[in-house]
């Protein structure tokens, strides 16, 4: 772990506080939907369309809640989408500033190597499948680790606690079963 947990926790806590002080709670997973919508709308311009008082979509999920997702697809230069792009930039700069991630770990992470060897194909397949399940689950839940768990529990939201209970029950079980050898 690159940073003492206390320093890291304070840094992370201050960012979550700053977000709610200045704008709104942090969330990420919705932006996967927005990017999907942007791609779909680029392929088929009728996917998201303007209405008299906003935007709608042929997709029921984008059209729900008065078309708020459709609106974000139509205007990608909005707070939440730019936030996620900036988060990626910040992560990149931070990793570079500490000398970057070593080449072997960039290819296959250490704990995976200790348990399953350094064949990247197997690792990439599981990462892809994991990504599919994570985002499908996050959208069903209405948020992810950032929005539901951290922002939610911080605000004493009941939904945040329900989400964390489900997420940790599954994650701890799967992780203990999958990663028996230590790196």
């Amino acid at each position: 772990m690159p940073m003492n947990w206390k320093t890291g926790g304070v840094l992370l806590g201050l960012v979550f506080f700053l977000a709610i002080l200045l704008v709104k709670p942090i969330g990420v997973s919705t932006q996967f939907v927005i990017l999907d919508g942007i791609i779909a709308d680029a392929v088929n311009p009728d996917f998201v369309t303007a209405t008299d008082d906003g935007f709608t979509s042929t997709n029921a999920y984008l059209a729900k809640s008065g078309g708020k997702y459709a609106k974000s697809v139509a205007n990608p230069l909005n707070y939440s989408f730019v936030f996620v792009l900036a988060m990626m930039l910040g992560g990149f700069l931070s990793a570079m500033a500490r000398g970057g991630i070593d080449a072997q770990d960039r290819k296959v992470p250490a704990l995976w190597r200790a348990n399953y060897g350094d064949d990247p194909v197997k690792r990439y397949l599981v990462a892809f499948l994991g990504g599919f399940i994570v985002l499908y689950g996050a959208r069903l839940a209405g948020g992810c680790t950032s929005g539901h768990m951290m922002s939610g529990m911080m605000q004493t939201a009941v939904s945040g606690y329900i989400f964390a209970a489900g997420a940790f029950a599954a994650a701890i079980t799967v992780s203990i079963l999958m990663f028996k050898k230590e790196a």
């Binding site: 499948l129 994991g130 990504g131 689950g137 839940a141 680790t145 489900g166 997420a167 029950a169 999958m178």
Partner: peptide
């Protein structure tokens, strides 16, 4: 959804 996310998170 939390269960699904958790499983994928660990994988």
């Amino acid at each position: 959804g939390g269960l699904l996310l958790g499983a994928g998170w660990a994988m």
